[in-house]
Amino acid sequence: MGRVLREKYTRQPTPFCPGCGHGIFLNAFLHAVDELGLDFDKTVFVSGIGCGAWVPSPHFQADTLHVTHGRAVAFATGVKTANPDLNVIVIGGDGDIATIGGNHLIHAARRNLPLKVFCLNNFLYGMTGGQVSATTPQGDITSTTRQGNPERPFDLVDLARGAGAPYVARFPVSQPRKLKRGIINALSFDQFAFMDVLSLCPTQYGRANRAKRGYEGPSMIWSMLEHQKGTVAPREKLDSENPEGKIPIGEWYAES
């Protein structure tokens, strides 16, 4: 499958760091695309600036619009309204989509055009040097919060649901099969869909928080993946009680 996906959907290998969680998302995404039979000739990928934004552009063999930082969702709104026959998919990071671009995200959710927005959430700015973002957990170390992040993060699922998104999901890259299933559901949904993809940045986040989070072993990314699996649980299980403060994963459909 690896070769098939590469040849069918990509133009070139990614420049991501070894073990980058965004690569695992890319892998799951293309598995989903292939399983769905999504027509790449009728699909436009819109992405802004940052590592996550590089997933589709310049890598996917579809129309790609690589735009200014934070504005991908707004550009996508123009693309989709001007030609509703196109599948319009936004992929980007938490800095891009949820921090500088947060305003566009909530308004797109409210507007409920059938856009698909995947936020590859690695809890900080990767490409620009590991700075704190709107999703960095309180206390975490980033290059601009050396003593630990004093601010509270956004919960992107709550944010998108609060803004009215009729499909919201959260899946971790450490569970690629669930992630793929979610992507299929999001892509086949007929309205606005948002996914908080719990990604991993070994280079910036991993190194900075190695001691704090206890990432061990020679392969830090593997330890991060293992750790991530331990921090999440299906939302259905957490609805009644969540003593360990696990991060709920799964899908939230608006009751209609």
Binding site: V44, V46, D63, L65, V67, T68, R71, A74, F75, A76, T77, G78, V79, K80, T81, A82, N83, L86, N103, H104, H107
Partner: peptide
């Protein structure tokens, strides 16, 4: 489309232009 701000307005116009309008 009435957008959420002028940044988004300009963005949407560019997106639409590439959609052929």
């Amino acid at each position: 489309v009435q957008m959420e701000d002028e940044i988004a307005s300009m963005a949407a116009v560019i997106g639409a232009s590439w959609s052929g309008l």
